[in-house]
């Protein structure tokens, strides 16, 4: 297969283990630079890399990634609320679950310790390898150092996180709402923020499965039975 374009690096043409090595190396380099601040890391072979850093090293990690690892492309910055939703999925049949406790949260890749986690992704424009950075935020102090001086694109992302999760960023020049009206109360993307439309009228349900192409007979009855509800 011939390629006309001028890029020298095409990761897909290399066998998978080599890519692993590249990602491992990247994570290792970050670990060397940050020392103990790297809490946990995970590399999915051929897919992606995750690194969880300590809150104190959040901005240092960004600077190291940009200046020393060549991850100069700022993809996004966001956050995750790991609290299970107290409202279930708001379907007809699902009774409201018991109020969840923050004691036993089920964190994803690269683990976690607290309810809120920052999540960011940086990519290298030359090797095209990316890294997902995570960072735990203590429940009593939802404040992180700003990235907007390292990656100017983080400015708006941080404003969005601030209004959606209530996480503030120390040193951010202009931390005001970006989407929501200025007097909006609450932080909509927190799991305990109710989705009001669902409170008013529950979702009709899950059963909207259509028969698979090619195998209509097996599913017909089940689908019809489901559709009647």
């Amino acid at each position: 297969m011939s390629r006309l374009s001028s890029a020298e690096t095409t990761t897909e043409e290399q066998p998978a283990p080599l890519v692993d090595a590249a990602r491992d190396e990247m994570v290792a380099a970050l670990a060397t630079q940050l020392g103990d601040a790297v809490v946990e890391s995970h590399v999915a072979p051929g897919r992606d890399a995750w690194v969880r850093v300590d809150l104190s090293a959040w901005d240092t990690a960004a600077r190291v990634c940009r200046e020393q690892l060549g991850l100069t492309y700022f993809c996004y910055l966001s956050a995750i609320d790991w609290l299970p939703s107290p409202f279930g999925r708001s379907e007809d049949d699902s009774a409201p679950t018991v109020a969840p406790s923050t004691d036993q949260l089920d964190h994803g890749v690269a683990g976690g310790a607290t309810r809120f986690q920052l999540l960011a992704r940086l990519v290298s424009p030359t090797t095209h390898l990316g890294i997902n950075l995570k960072c735990d935020l203590p429940d009593d102090g939802l404040t992180a150092p700003t990235w907007s001086r390292i990656f100017p694109g983080a400015d708006w992302n941080e404003r969005e996180i601030c209004e959606m999760f209530g996480i503030t960023f120390a040193g951010h020049p202009h931390l005001v709402n970006i989407y929501l009206p200025g007097d909006f109360e609450g932080h909509p993307l927190r799991k305990d923020f109710p989705l009001l439309s669902r409170m008013v009228k529950p979702w009709p349900g899950l059963v909207d499965v259509e028969p698979m192409p090619g195998e209509p007979d097996e599913d017909e009855e089940a689908t019809e039975a489901g559709d009647e509800e």
Partner: peptide
Amino acid sequence: EVALGYGLSGANL
């Protein structure tokens, strides 16, 4: 450099 820092992508980049 600026484009990358702001996360511009696609044709803009």
